[in-house]
Simulated assay, not measured.
Amino acid sequence: MALTIGIIGLPQSGKTSLFNALTKAGAPISGYAASTVKANIGMVQVPDARLQPLADIFQPKKTTPTTVDFVDVAGMGQAAQGGKDKKEGLNAEFLGHIRNADALAVVLRSFANDNVTHVNDTIDPFRDLENLNAELTITDLASVERRLERSTRSAKSGDKKYQQEIDILRRLQSALEEFKLIKDLELGQPEQALLKDLFLLTIKPRMYVLNVSEGALGEANELLEKIAAGEAVDEAGLSNELKGIAKVAQRARSEGSEVAAVSASLEAELSELPEEDAQEYLESLGLPKLGADRVIQVGYRLLNLITFLTAGEDEVRAWTVTKGAKAPEAAGKIHTDLERTFIRAEVIHYNDFIKYGSFAAAKEKGVYRLEGKEYVVEDGDIMQIRAGAGK
């Protein structure tokens, strides 16, 4: 199953422009109201520079990168427009588009444009983040309170498990009423088990995607790198746009979230150009790659994901697993039966394979090895699975 990232933000924040830059889907760009439940859905191939060299060597019938699904949902903003006392939250159909997302990409607008109105009239990405968080917590609060009502009714049977559930739900309710994100709470195993059933939004890993003006793109990325590294930043010399970016980046660093800066409209345009032309323009801005590619990479770091590879004459393919996964789990990504019948894996790292040019040469050099069930897969491993006969 592909990684799924839900793209959320206020209307006119650039969500759909980012979606188009990522997916090349050409979704229509027009601000739609918070009551609209329309969603754009697209699949993106994850850029991986290791696939082409392997394809050049093996000349396979096909080359298959791993993928990410992006879901661009309607513009939020009830909390921004109705205040924190508004209790409806997001409706069920809206939630249906993002409740199963593995992570959220929160798009925050920092660019000014008189032709593109802002729901709050002024540009302030940190304020917008606070408003979005308020709406997410209101939505989660409604979910928790509905579950609390059901559990309270069920507890009348005398079953003690419901009383424990009520205690947990009341703790969550109290936190959400104070507009705290569930992901910031210290939760034990019983709480974690219950959360899997609730599909709360404020527990999902998140990245902040700052949609910046084209002219500020290079400076914004340099600023994000400094803040991520813990370097001091003299905000007195920054433009208003960069000050807003710095504030969001500092918030992201304090809570362990990831952040990226893109110019979504620019990159949507570049995504329609031939790759060489787009790359040349990016280099003129001092940027190594499309922001869309950076968003995918940030998503992988956010979710602690790595990529392993399989290679042969039939197919060269990339696969995604969680960092720390053992060899049988990786085998299960290729086919579920392989995890159950796993015996061992033949493993060589991509860098060693490219250095020596073939499996045979790698074996001679002693870098092609057999690993058992306890082997922890590393990013860039090329694996061949040995398994027993299935039932």
Rank of each mutant, 00 (worst) to 15 (best):
A2P: 15
I7Y: 00
Q12I: 09
A21R: 05
L22C: 12
G26R: 04
G31N: 09
I41E: 10
M43T: 15
Q52N: 13
P60N: 09
K61N: 06
A74S: 15
G75W: 05
A79R: 01
F94Q: 03
H97T: 05
A101D: 02
A101Y: 00
A105Q: 02
V106G: 08
F111G: 08
A112Y: 12
T117C: 00
D121F: 10
E130C: 03
N133F: 07
T139V: 06
V144Y: 02
R147L: 12
R147T: 15
R150K: 15
S154G: 02
S154R: 15
D159W: 12
D159P: 06
I166S: 00
F179C: 01
K180A: 10
A193S: 14
L195C: 10
D197M: 02
K204E: 05
P205Y: 10
G218C: 11
G218I: 01
A220L: 09
E222F: 13
A229N: 14
E231R: 14
E235N: 11
L242K: 07
K243M: 11
G244L: 13
S254F: 07
S271Q: 10
E272K: 14
P274S: 04
P288R: 13
Y300V: 07
L305H: 04
E313S: 11
V316G: 01
E329F: 13
D337M: 11
D337E: 14
R340T: 14
T341N: 12
I343R: 02
E346I: 09
N351D: 15
S358H: 06
A361L: 08
V377F: 03
